[in-house]
Amino acid sequence: MDNQTKAPHLAGVIGFFSDPHQLLHATEKVRDSSYKHFDAFTPYPVHGMDAAQGLKRSPLPFVTFAAGLTGCTLGFLLQYWTSVVDWPIIVGGKPMNSWPAFVPVMFECTILFAGLATVGAMFLLNGLPNHKRKSFDPRITRDQFALLIEAPVALEADRAEQFNESKAAEFLKSIGAKEVKSVYSEGWF
């Protein structure tokens, strides 16, 4: 890849916190600061992190809803077409369009479509799977909570100028990080 031929550039400054409450409050402070690009890393989901990061609600539920309705409709049309239009057979003396008999399949199609679309849209929205990214510190999958203030991408040279490494490090320390270090892109970013 392009990245590997270039010299590693500054990806950002990361601060470590030892408990989730500290991290939550620190994240709120970063959210309210002038730093626009940041991310939190935790070994397990921390309640309230979405609000602390100022994340907007995900559009995922609308995908689920639309896909569910589509599945329900297609489930009905499939059965209507097979048992009324394409190959009508009288079963149990019931009308061709016996909708109560169609309901279980419509229900299952609703679930199937909604479920698959949700998983698919989730991967699209969060950009996973991404084999290029590497964990930059194994501790964040064990017992450490981290907050990364991202440096603007090197390509935006003018903005990169403005990013002050030591200032960001100072800021992280001031909001309670017990350890701060700069991280360089190694293809994970």
Binding site: G93, P100, A101, V103, P104
Partner: peptide
């Protein structure tokens, strides 16, 4: 409710 209805309706 539907489970009760459908089984009775189907078996007739």
């Amino acid at each position: 409710g539907f489970s009760q209805f459908m089984l009775i309706w189907y078996a007739n």
